[in-house]
Design a protein around this nucleic acid. Structure first.
Lengths: 156, 156
DNA sequence: AGTGATATTGATAATCGTTTTCACTGTCGT
DNA sequence: ACGACAGTGAAAACGATTATCAATATCACT
């Protein structure tokens, strides 16, 4: 957290931008999140303690965090964008529960390799990709009783 | 084309909806497209000859075409939705050229199988997925000279 | 073909997430 | 501390899509 904050300030400095109170508050709030947040959601967190901060500034700061390489913006389906920490880890993809909205991350080397093959074959030069699986998470599929497709140990 | 049009009319009839002049014109224009169209784009095609048709009606008719199972709506990145014919063929995914916007379709059984594995492992019940590869198509990568990554016969 | 119930249309306004505008305020190098 | 100039927030603008509503068209029934 402190390290990421420092990275952000270093970025601002290098880019000739100013390290303002608002930017620090918003960045702090962002780094304190564990899951994906929308601009609005982050705004609510910050505005709770600092009501004078505007939603616009949250949008602007999130853009800066992206530029600094510290945040990724994701578009799941339609509607609002969600932001997540940009870790130095591998690229990952997402599974989105259509019932409760829970987002689970995963990475799979083989899928990436297959994508690479396809792209080569078609003569494309790939820049990035987006793989999203939509469905019901374990809890929601249990709750709605939409059981088929789930294999559990006791099923056998 | 005629067959799809008939399917649409059958759907309207079954749903207790009316087969209007506008709906036929818009459906015709849609079935006449070969690639992905936006509502706006389809509107422009229709409005060329029939200026009294409103964009709103195009949106509404596209929704009906979806309901009839004759169109799919796609959200590529941010911005406007694109519509494509819903063929009875297999599910397919897309490669989008970030330069010229060209959209190429592909399908790959192995990727689907791997997705299935991952989903099982995580206890999710998958409903649908979305795989999009973004990059430069053959023409655009040649044009911009961003050559690396492309393997051609004459390269050896 | 005519009628009438009701679905449909199109212009306009509304919506939603996001970005711009702009007058005022803050930051930071000097 | 000063001043140039970047940053702020409120409100307006924006683009894609949807809702509203009065006027119009369709279609089952005669």
């Amino acid at each position: 957290m402190q390290e990421k904050l420092r990275q952000f300030q270093r970025y601002l400095d290098k880019a000739g931008l100013k390290a303002t109170r608002q930017r620090e508050l918003i960045a702090r709030a962002f780094f304190a999140t564990t899951t994906h947040v929308s601009a609005e959601g982050l705004y609510r967190r910050v505005a709770g303690r600092h009501p004078r901060i505007g939603l616009v500034t949250v949008y602007r700061t999130l853009k800066l965090l992206k530029d600094a390489g510290l945040a990724h913006e994701r578009q799941f389906g339609e509607g609002r964008a969600l932001f997540e920490h940009a870790s130095s880890e591998h690229h990952h993809d997402h599974i989105i529960c259509t019932e409760c909205g829970k987002i689970t991350e995963f990475e799979n080397y083989e899928i990436e390799a297959l994508q690479e093959q396809i792209v080569r074959r078609l003569g494309f030069l790939i820049r990035h990709h987006k793989l999203e699986l939509y469905g019901l998470c374990r809890e929601c599929s249990a709750a709605t009783g939409a059981g088929q497709g789930i294999q559990t140990a006791e099923a056998g």
